[in-house]
């Protein structure tokens, strides 16, 4: 194992300069995530555009894996439908936990998180944002039809 498999340039970049950092005013969906092991705290807020995630922000403090994963997630899920979000969540979960993982799809920049699976203690860091976003969407319930 090489440290650079975990701390790839994309991860270090997103840790140093997190994208979509902050909080949306008048969010349609939001949730807090907490990893008591390392004290990571995340807040995720989303604005829905029908069934699609119109906009998303995250806020909080955490380790490099946790911050970079949240930052990468916000870029990857904006504009996605709920079903697409869930499919992506499953794909990322497999990427983080399954050895000899063969991606069923092109995960784009999210693939940079692949090194995490060699560090079992760090999987929760990378997945916290996804669980939190999932909880936010669940809590927001089914979108109200405007038709």
């Amino acid at each position: 194992m090489d440290l650079r498999d975990l701390y790839r340039d994309v991860i270090l970049d997103h840790n140093r300069q997190p994208r979509n950092f902050g909080r949306l005013d008048a969010a349609d969906a939001e949730a807090d995530g907490h990893n008591p092991l390392c004290g990571d705290r995340l807040h995720i807020s989303m604005r829905m555009d029908g069934d699609r995630i119109g906009d998303v922000r995250f806020e909080g403090q955490g380790c490099a894996i946790s911050v970079a994963s949240a930052s990468l997630m916000t870029e990857a899920i904006r504009g996605r439908t709920r079903a697409e979000f869930e499919a992506l969540f499953s794909a990322v979960h497999a990427l983080l936990t399954e050895h000899d993982h063969v991606p069923g799809r092109d995960l784009g920049k999210l693939a940079a998180l692949g090194g995490v699976r060699e560090y079992p203690a760090r999987v929760k860091c990378a997945s916290l944002c996804w669980h939190t976003a999932h909880a936010a969407l669940e809590r927001a319930g089914a979108p109200v039809s405007t038709e």
Partner: peptide, 10 residues
């Protein structure tokens, strides 16, 4: 600039 968890892993 470095979270303790990252220190621990490295």
């Amino acid at each position: 600039g470095t979270h303790p968890h990252d220190i621990g892993t490295i």
